[in-house]
Write a protein that binds this DNA or RNA. Structure first.
Lengths: 192, 192
DNA sequence: GTCTATAGCTCGATAGAC
DNA sequence: GTCTATCGAGCTATAGAC
């Protein structure tokens, strides 16, 4: 009934989450995670049968991180408009890592779409969580018909910004894009 | 003085270019390229000292492909507006591979920014070739002051579209986005 | 539950015959 | 220039002692 192992399992997931982001999934080895956590390689197989199972656990963790972000957006204001602004500003709050490694979801999806469509589907469902929240906020701001395509457009702009900021390693572009994104949202919501 | 080897070297580059796109750079092995070309593994080292040298050659090849695309854009019309449209429509002309593997430049940049900043700089310079051409076309359409930031915005939109189309494996979204992109360009150029 | 040792495989890279 | 054979390192995964 004792669950000290939960600690080790959680530490593996957290280290893997960071390493998969920084180095990519395929370029992260068990040795890397072992070095980061101090837990021996062979021990991992007590918690996970395969490397893919670690990836699954990491994806569940990222899903919960996204849900945490959405909650923070909800708590940032009572106005849907400002909640969406808070979402856009995650670009600036995470600017350092985005410049260096891109979007944690976008770059992982890119990698997995080339190697494991099954796992890529899991990333897609995290995107869906994000998109549905955006759609809900746009709906409550009066966009009942266009809310779906607008939510896709908003995600698309966010992804485009992270890719180019990463390509050009340009934090000023990232900040200007976030500002421009909020101006676009303002214009959009002004008419409702 | 005989150069039959040029044939083999070129075949290696072409196969590597395709495999680096479809599987990713790190996930493509010499064996994969050997299987694709019929050229034995060990033979590669006559033409390239390291795997990174193959990547360099592939990047030079992609640079020339981009220059070919720009030439096709130039030849598609005498109007800068329609030349830009032709550029946007590459999304639709390449829709199948974009849905499956994303943008050949964007996904490669994502991967390399995590593993080899040196090689990523090479990808960045290819993006620059693209961006400068767009900037030139916007300038000749009257945007002398905003042409730089608008060229970044156009690249950003293109990248965002490819990422989301790949995440959602959605060709309809890709086509709608291309249309929307051209409408945005039309609105922009209407005022000049 | 935790750890070491290692199997079995594939990788990039090398050596050398022809 | 073209090919085969192989090295040494690193990988995921397994076996089994404690």
């Amino acid at each position: 009934m004792k669950q000290q192992n939960t600690n080790s399992k959680e530490r593996i997931i957290l280290a893997a989450d960071q390493l998969f982001y920084v180095r990519g999934y395929s370029q992260t080895s068990f040795s890397d995670i072992a070095e980061e956590t101090g837990i021996p390689r062979g021990n991992f197989y007590y918690y996970f049968k395969t490397k893919d199972e670690i990836l699954s656990a990491v994806l569940e963790h990222r899903q919960s991180l996204i849900e945490g972000l959405l909650e923070a957006c909800e708590n940032s204001s009572s106005e849907p408009r400002d909640q969406l602004f808070y979402m856009v500003d995650v670009l600036v709050r995470e600017e350092d890592s985005i410049i260096k490694y891109g979007c944690p979801l976008g770059t992982l999806s890119s990698e997995l779409s080339k190697t494991s469509l099954t796992m890529q589907q899991h990333v897609k469902s995290i995107f869906e969580t994000l998109r549905q929240w955006i759609e809900k906020k746009l709906s409550s701001a009066g966009f009942s018909d266009r809310s779906h395509s607008l939510s896709m457009e908003m995600l698309s702009r966010l992804q485009g910004t992270t890719v180019l900021a990463n390509v050009y390693q340009d934090v000023d572009f990232l900040r200007r894009s976030a500002l421009q994104h909020k101006q676009w949202l303002s214009e959009l919501l002004k008419n409702h």
